[in-house]
Simulated scan of single mutants.
Amino acid sequence: MDSDRHKNKTPSDLKKMCPQQRARCQAYMEPTKEAQNSVALAKQRVSAAITKDKNLSVGNKTTADEKMRQDSLIGQLKAAEARNRTRQMRLHYHNYRAQEINLMISNQATAQRALRVELLLPASESKTRTDDSLSKLQRRRVEEILDDERGLTLNRT
């Protein structure tokens, strides 16, 4: 019933209304032929685009998988190259440092000074294990034995 009331409005009546009332009335009115044609054309374009995308996605699915695989491989190669460059730079630095220290040692005035410099600045870093292979109990027992100056811990009779 309310929609019937809005259908009977003439264009002159619509012009007299404020914009909010006009919008309410036009919401219930039948769209013009021109608007209906535009809506139909838009729906056709949308459906054509959807079917075109579906057809392309079926054909491109394998190429997309292949591209992802290639991108992953390229990423792995780049990471390996970066690690190799870092390793080469580290080796170059250590070699250069060792040469400089050896040069400093050889340029000392006396053998005693050369030994001092060699002890303070080792040419190559020694790779000692810093992790402890002993448990706390074993460590305490070893320290107990080392601290025992009279040999009471081991020499029991």
Score class of each variant (00 low, 15 high):
Leu134Thr: 01
Asn55Lys: 15
Thr130Gln: 09
Cys25Gly: 01
Asp148Trp: 14
Ser12Gln: 14
Leu119Thr: 09
Thr10Ser: 13
Leu77Gly: 03
Pro31Ser: 00
Glu66Phe: 00
Val39Ile: 11
Met1Pro: 05
Ser47Pro: 02
Ser124Ala: 05
Gln108His: 06
Arg45Trp: 03
Lys16Thr: 02
Ser106Met: 07
Arg113Glu: 13
Arg150Ile: 04
Ala23His: 13
Tyr96Thr: 14
Leu152Cys: 04
Lys9Leu: 12
Val58Leu: 05
Asp53Leu: 07
Ser57Met: 09
Ser3Glu: 06
Lys16His: 08
Lys54Thr: 10
Lys136Met: 08
Arg24Pro: 00
Met104Cys: 02
Asp71Trp: 05
Leu77Lys: 04
Leu103Ser: 08
Asp2Glu: 10
Leu137Gly: 04
Leu119Ala: 09
Lys78Val: 02
Gln99Arg: 15
Pro19Lys: 09
Gln99Val: 00
Leu119Val: 01
Lys16Asp: 08
His92Glu: 15
Arg116Ile: 06
Tyr96Cys: 13
Leu137Asn: 11
Asp65Leu: 06
Arg141Met: 09
Pro122Ile: 01
Gln20Ile: 10
Thr153Gln: 08
Ser133Arg: 15
Gln26Ile: 12
Glu118Asp: 14
Ala123Ile: 02
Pro11Glu: 15
His92Ala: 14
Thr153Leu: 13
His6Tyr: 14
Leu73Cys: 04
His94Gly: 00
Gln108Ser: 15
Arg139Asp: 04
Thr130His: 10
Gln112Leu: 06
Ile145Trp: 03
Arg22Val: 02
Pro31Gly: 00
Lys54Trp: 09
Met29Thr: 02
Ile74Glu: 07
Arg140Gly: 00
Glu118Gly: 01
Thr10Trp: 10
Leu121Ala: 07
Met1Lys: 12
Asp132Val: 10
His6Glu: 03
Leu77His: 01
Asp131Ser: 13
Asp71Ala: 12
Asp4Gly: 13
Ala114Pro: 09
Asn60Arg: 15
Leu56His: 04
Gln20Ala: 11
Val58Ser: 04
Arg141Ser: 06
Leu41Cys: 01
Arg5Pro: 00
Arg141Ile: 09
Ile101Asp: 10
Ser3Met: 02
Ala49Tyr: 14
Asp131His: 10
Leu56Asp: 12
Asn60Ser: 11
Pro31Asn: 03
Ile101Thr: 01
Gln26Ser: 03
Asn55His: 07
Leu103Pro: 00
Thr128Ile: 07
Ser72Ile: 06
Ala82Thr: 12
Arg156Ser: 08
Gln76Glu: 14
Asp65Glu: 15
Glu100Ala: 07
Ser106Pro: 05
